[in-house]
Design a protein around this nucleic acid. Sequence first.
DNA 1: TGCGGTTTTTACAACGTTTACCGATTCTGG
DNA 2: CCAGAATCGGTAAACGTTGTAAAAACCGCA
Lengths: 333, 333
Amino acid sequence: MVTRLSDVAARAGVSVKTVSNVINDYPHITSQTRAKVQAAIEELDYRPNVSARSLRKGRSDFIALAIPEMASPYFAELGAAISRAAKKRGITVLIDQTEGEAAAEKLVLDGMRGQLIDGIIFSPITTSPARIGETETAKPIVLLGERDAGGRLDRVAVDSVQASYDATTHLISLGRRRIAAIGVGGGAGTGSVRRKGYRKALKAAGIAHDPALELAGTGYHREDGAASMRELLALPEPPDAVFCFNDLLALGALRTLADAGLSVPDDVAVVGFDDIEDGRYHSPSLTTVAPDMEWLADHAVALLLDRIAGNGEAARRDLTVPHTLKIRESTGG
Amino acid sequence: MVTRLSDVAARAGVSVKTVSNVINDYPHITSQTRAKVQAAIEELDYRPNVSARSLRKGRSDFIALAIPEMASPYFAELGAAISRAAKKRGITVLIDQTEGEAAAEKLVLDGMRGQLIDGIIFSPITTSPARIGETETAKPIVLLGERDAGGRLDRVAVDSVQASYDATTHLISLGRRRIAAIGVGGGAGTGSVRRKGYRKALKAAGIAHDPALELAGTGYHREDGAASMRELLALPEPPDAVFCFNDLLALGALRTLADAGLSVPDDVAVVGFDDIEDGRYHSPSLTTVAPDMEWLADHAVALLLDRIAGNGEAARRDLTVPHTLKIRESTGG
DNA sequence: TGCGGTTTTTACAACGTTTACCGATTCTGG
DNA sequence: CCAGAATCGGTAAACGTTGTAAAAACCGCA
């Protein structure tokens, strides 16, 4: 039993357009008419047809969030936060798992889900910053993370260089000198930006950086962290501290350390990045860089909605998410 | 620059209808025409307008997945799996976070997102089974989890009684006798069904069940597991094994045990339920009941699509997800 | 009462797609 | 080479909503 606008109109004894006006808060309506219509809507339990509205208005109040994988704790928490932030503003989030595949990312970019989506919040992995900036998308995009798009797209990100500097400096302040880094990567992505902060901190403390202590690994999951840690332990001179570029890597590293019978933080101190819940409850609990996720979600959504609202020509904005270093047991906190 | 069906038609030199026919795989089209149209579609990078199509067809190829919270690992993995399963079939999943609130669940049920959604996969928390069955929804629903809807809705779930029986029996086979349960709950939900299997196993082994060892707690997160474990340790006669009704509870319990300086599994053996990734990498790694998530996702989606396709009158189906007990370090595996 | 001006309501035409209904074209066999 | 069948393509009318523009109702004031 589908209820249409015309059903409501018939019931309220007014025209279809008047009902539409009531729904869309058109100002000039007598409170009497409004009440009548509201009552009819209640009685019939009417809900506007999203498709029809979207077709007519050219707006759907849907946005997409494109992330590599929803099952990864950081992205799961991000998705939850963005959904909440969007819901507050009456809009719905559609989550797109790109699985880090270039093809899927491209599809997100130009496919745009058949014009249903009003805009995208995009957390790219494979697609190069340049390519993203290049793509002439019909709809606004807000970028998340370190990758820049040649300065052409709005972006919301942690100051990863500063955050990594903070994390590394914390390890140095504990008296550690052989500090490894797990997750360094080539290109302009997360891995290379965080390495920059890491090296900067070492340099500031007068510690020469040892390439043997910088491990790239193949990914950003626990297994990659575990494998990298095994490599580090096999070195003639193993590290006394490790800065992992995300929490999953750190949790993997902790597992390897536990297996090796090493004590954390006494033998090796460990710092992560992201502040996912697993790290907070892990034993030992994980010292980590904590971006303000609510802030991030809220501003990313607000930024996108502002563009959608038509501020297409406004200057590009680049927002920095506040972060703190949560010192916990894995560094003796 | 919006491309419409008519643009494609003009380019290919055919009528709008023909293009539509090609897109919808209408059988009687010369391969020549088809090729021409395909080419035009390629060249113009045409994508059908989802709103218009959905308005006309009454179908959107969107389904919703309603879960309590996306950030919880089990649900994050579930969301990922369902999304994948749906994408394989060319349909898109919209994730709804109900946050366990009755209001949100109700909204999902009758709001139905303004008729955009073709159906729902629903993992209810607060809404009572009866209420769900009652609701005369316009669109099909597939239920996930223990809660039954008075036998009126299709459902996909693990045989929780059997699985809990298996888990408890495993602990008994290790020689444990004071086996606690964390997460027991009233009503007809997860907590009570799993308790049933737990008690059954105790009974089968001739162990009297001790109410002091059954903790309800307030939720299903790490903190709840940690708190419950603290209660158990405060007992005059603490348990030598704990069966937690999900992995998060178990991870919380492990944290408390570590803080108390107790050894797992020597002092206390721990079993969880869900097989989330955190448990696999935890130290000690977590013995747990592992439902076949791919199977679950695939069948839930298939079931829903079958209903959507019009098999509304077919008999209700109740599918049992295969599960295995993964024996790991937390029980000496 | 009648008039300008203002407020409130209405009719009609889109938005881009698919479907029902036909008319046109091609193919087959005699 | 033609009748009839099979195949293919075109026209027009929906789907439910909102924007435009115009009509109707109302107001106060002369």
